[in-house]
Design a protein around this nucleic acid. Structure first.
Lengths: 253, 253
DNA sequence: CGTGCTGTTGAGGACGATCAATGACGGTGG
DNA sequence: CCACCGTCATTGATCGTCCTCAACAGCACG
């Protein structure tokens, strides 16, 4: 019963680990057995502090979160968004002593999973494929950061288009059927490095171009192709195709 | 003789691995024994293509290099600079199939070291501390990317000041005694995401502020403290202090 | 029915890009 | 030794993007 529900909750991790190259069922199961599930994280709540992150590896099981930091002037820089199956705050796993001020914040109600750091270390030692998978997850994140540096040099419309393209592609890869990205304009602005006012004008532009729906209270993509063209989106930096094709993982939904 | 020279060349790797947590001499030696040294890389030369990167892990032993990419419009985005002891193109180690267009380019004459991927994998399996060290190196790089995203939101003067602060701190940590950063304005512009024209005006500003020397053909910092203040530089993101103090590594020079 | 959060609109101004040209320096070949 | 060339640094002027400030509208919530 409880066990049964936990397995459902862990499905995103199972899928993610397989796309990261964990092909051996024993490796996979060894990992899944360690995860403690925690439901009921609410919007705005801090995920890393909520689980005393320095002692645990943390992963997002359900909902939407973001890795961000508060700047001196009070504004928030969102580094990346996190979807179910993402490991969050991996930097704290390899640098437990780190004093970086990085927050992971729930943007919707979330469920998370945690694994005690020491237990995970032991397990990784016996299942090297797991260590490599974690490393790969971190490297994909780094690719996202690099890509963002490139994108930030482009004008605002293309920048936002690229950002939304990335979210859409990542969501589709996880099997989300609809084209609604559950973020608001403030969050897009903080991620794109734009003011909310200008971001709003960009959204109006994207709506006039028929890329986003007229729905004012949702980010709903109605012309995916055009969006990606505008953003010059090239998914290669996400390192999806390789892992997906190599292990023949189905993309459901 | 040849062995002797190779050991000199590998000193940066020895130091770096220790700061990354490789405390066991056996682990360290196992790694160093695998490195093939290659001297004579010349400025402008591509380092990753020069060594057929997909089959080798590569590290910089001497000189200055940068990880960069060419944008559609022809301009170059420099993601980060590489100093002796840095692993370059680590992403190609965990994603050998990756089709990302990332270049590593020599900015001065360089020496590099390479290790065959398969050989390295075998060795890492027997020396997990090495795997963790590689992962940590990659995570520090990711921190640098994140920090750059923050910095890119600040005005040009502070942005350049932060960028130069980082280079200075990294160089000092490696024992470079002087305060000259061997880059030109074009490279700073490409890394900061500014035009060369504006970068030049920023340099003039930094000179007037007494932060950089009047020497027009070198980036020479003459007021380190002021530079870091201007850039609001906080070295914590480099994860130096922890690793350095934890294992008590001396900073020479 | 107020209060807070998000989205929207307008006006003014600053920062940085772009274009174009010139200067300074080192290396090369005649 | 000088003429030439390529690279890098510098300067001026113009223009566009985006920020800031300020106000208001819509909606959900208690």
């Amino acid at each position: 019963m409880k066990q049964h529900r936990a397995e459902d909750a862990l499905r995103p991790m199972s899928r993610r680990l397989r796309t990261l190259g964990v092909v051996n069922i024993g490796d996979l199961q060894a990992f899944l057995n360690l995860v403690k599930v925690k439901h009921g994280i609410t919007r705005r709540e801090s995920i890393v502090s909520a689980v005393h992150a320095a002692k645990h590896a943390t992963m997002l099981l359900d909902g939407l979160a973001c890795m961000s930091t508060r700047l001196q002037d009070g504004c928030r820089q969102i580094y990346t968004f996190h979807y179910p199956g993402d490991f969050v705050a991996l930097h704290r796993y390899v640098f437990p002593q780190s004093t970086e001020h990085i927050e992971v914040e729930a943007l919707t109600n979330c469920s998370i999973g945690t694994i005690d750091n020491e237990v995970l270390e032991q397990t990784v030692r016996h299942h090297p494929a797991l260590g490599l998978a974690l490393w790969r997850a971190a490297m994909i994140e780094a690719s996202i950061f690099r890509q963002r540096m490139v994108t930030m040099r482009r004008p605002a419309l293309q920048r936002v288009a690229h950002l939304l393209s990335e979210q859409l592609v990542r969501r589709i890869a996880l099997g989300f059927a609809n084209n609604v990205i559950p973020v608001n304009q403030i969050e897009v602005a903080d991620a794109a490095g734009l003011s909310t006012v200008h971001t709003n004008r960009i959204f109006q532009g994207l709506r006039k171009l028929g890329v986003l729906s007229a729905n004012r209270h949702a980010v709903e993509v109605i012309n995916k192709k055009r969006l990606m063209e505008l953003g010059s989106f090239d998914r290669r930096y996400l390192n999806f195709r390789e892992t997906l094709s190599q292990w023949d993982i189905r993309i459901e939904g």
